[in-house]
Design a protein around this nucleic acid. Structure first.
Lengths: 210, 210, 210, 210
DNA sequence: TATGAATGAGCGTTCATTCAT
DNA sequence: GATGAATGAACGCTCATTCAT
């Protein structure tokens, strides 16, 4: 699909500017949340005029929604890449946990914002940013479920629960540990190679067929 | 101490009014979040004048903090009761999951608010409501850890991970399933007796010593 | 006029209570001004209920007006006494300056409030407290003028200006020095016996070298 | 430096608008005092939106402080000019009294406000507007004192008191007469050429008949 | 009669959004 | 197209005053 790339110089310039705005907004929203950041601040930080922001986004919520979906995309791309790098089901899960851990640690503040919007209550956005992100997350969980399903078929995993439920469980355990680590002052040490492994152990001890 | 209960009629009246305000505020905050509810709305809904709200609470944040801590108390009391009703480790965990599930389903909207403040990013409250609630949660997880520890000692559980990690994992799996159910239109059927059991199974399959 | 004194116990009690309120209010108003003191604070300080204040005074302004007129009375009584203690014109003026100085130094904060209401702009009081106090002050200046007049007749003073103008001038010089001293950290030393004398000297000694 | 005058059209426009706001505020504050004027009223009167006021001033106090200092500047400039127009000490003092009288009569209401802030009690302004204005006034009095000092050296004046005290006295006599005139319905006649002269006479002629 | 809980108008201030330039 | 000055609705909060007890 080369057609998608055929942007005029003008269009490329606009996209670049839009990204600059989103970058500035990301920092500010992460630091202080949706409500405590003003359009003027985003304008100042991105070095555009306030009116210019409204050329790119309909309103503050549109800017925020775009930002969150973009970040969500980035994360899901990384996660999808992680589970597609190998054919081995166990390695796929290892890669998932490893990548999710990295994303958490590298984007701690954004992750909190992200959870406030999805797990937590999203009151910022009138029209369903939360739903969009949750649907995307659900689809990703289904991909994880496929890994379990395939692993069960191959006899790598015991059939202890429905694959989708296993996906939910794995994701939930990950989140639980990662949030626990986020609050831990020594969180960096958890990112040493191999340490995240033990998240899997809890699930695998009962799951793996030996 | 029966003396503590000896409130004058006036004091009882004040407490009742305070609860009425908190009730009204609970509904509104659950519906729209901290920032999108005005003191005037709380006043209108609770049928008091705006000024009266400030007789009971120093400011809007004080009202919110009081509300959240009160609800947090209620939940933790129920959970503590649940794990103290029996001496059997497996039953304790069952009761925990059962009670946590009930709380989730009965207070869905509040739970979202609660997560926005703790797991998610809390920008509403200047002085650490989030920390207070997280500390409380951590302490509760330590109680769950004790159950695992004691179960491991008795040989009921395999020693597959540190007790506190097991507590984090169990709590994380619960949250994951419960949020999944919250989004499910058929969520009520999950509350039928016994259904929540399979949350435990995922952990127990690898954990239980057979 | 013994009739005025025939107050019942009830009436005497009420007067005493009114004074207690005024005393409390005096301290607060001196410290923070009319606008920055609330009726609740006056109630707390005087140990009455807020509603009780409204039994004694129609509103906050009435309380303030009563207070200021009462203080104004006190000052004018002291000043009138001062100029009536002797028949000698020069001693009358000395006593006036001496007494006015004492009043300033002993009631510095109140004096400022008083000036804000009379010389300065009085926006606190809807209906002419300032006028009432200014009229009273004018009448007092006329008494001072009589002293100059009488002194001129007796040949004690040169007839350099109308007596009322001399009164204005003397009062103005006093105020100027007293305010200057109020701002001076060593103000207390000015109250040593005799020091105030030199306020008079400026008026008494001719300045121009002929 | 002509460069200082090189303001862009935009900057000149802004200055003009700021002055319009200050003009409107001056009228209102003079009429009703700081506390009894709302930002909405200033906005209405100056024909700007409330928000616009906050582009020019940080808050209500900033607006007030700016206004008072600006007026204070204007007065002190006029007074300094008056005492620098001639080298003759007596003429300097004449010019001072003449100019001060004119300022009083032309800005009667503002003068009251000004006195409420300096002589009277200033509770409006958190951070020392009163001190700033008083310091400025003190410095001006020192300039007047220099005139007396120089006049004494030249033998024009008798050395009847310290020069600074003479300055205080002259200023005080002026204020006393001017306030007296302010209250007089025929005040305008006092401004006829030469009439203010007799303020000086009181100081200049020796009073006591020896 | 004295109380103090309750009231609600009114304030200072903010900030998303618009639109003339 | 880009700008940023101008807007004004809406907020959190205060406090003089009232009135049921």
């Amino acid at each position: 699909m080369t057609g998608e790339k055929k942007l005029t110089r003008r269009e490329r310039e606009k996209l670049r500017q839009k990204e600059e705005i989103l970058d500035a907004a990301l920092d500010l929203f992460c630091e202080r949340g949706f409500q405590n950041v003003s359009m003027l601040e985003i304008a100042k930080k991105s070095e555009f005029a306030v009116g210019t922001l409204y050329k790119f986004f309909n309103d503050k919520e549109d800017l925020y929604r775009t930002l969150m979906l973009e970040q969500s995309n980035k994360f899901h791309e990384a996660l999808n890449k992680a589970i597609n790098e190998t054919d081995n089901e166990i390695d796929k899960l290892k890669n998932f946990v490893k990548t999710k851990s990295r994303i958490f640690m590298e984007n701690a503040k954004l992750i909190r914002l992200y959870f406030a919007e999805t797990k937590g209550a999203s009151y910022n956005i009138k029209a369903g940013l939360d739903k969009e992100i949750r649907d995307r997350h659900k689809k990703f969980l289904e991909r994880i479920a496929k890994i379990f399903e395939s692993g069960i078929k191959k006899g790598i995993f015991k059939n202890i629960a429905e694959p989708y439920h296993l996906a939910i469980a794995l994701d939930g355990i990950c989140n639980a540990f990662l949030f626990s680590w986020l609050e831990n002052p020594e969180k960096n040490k958890f990112m040493e190679e191999g340490n995240y492994q033990f998240i899997l152990n809890i699930l695998f001890k009962g799951l793996i067929n030996e």
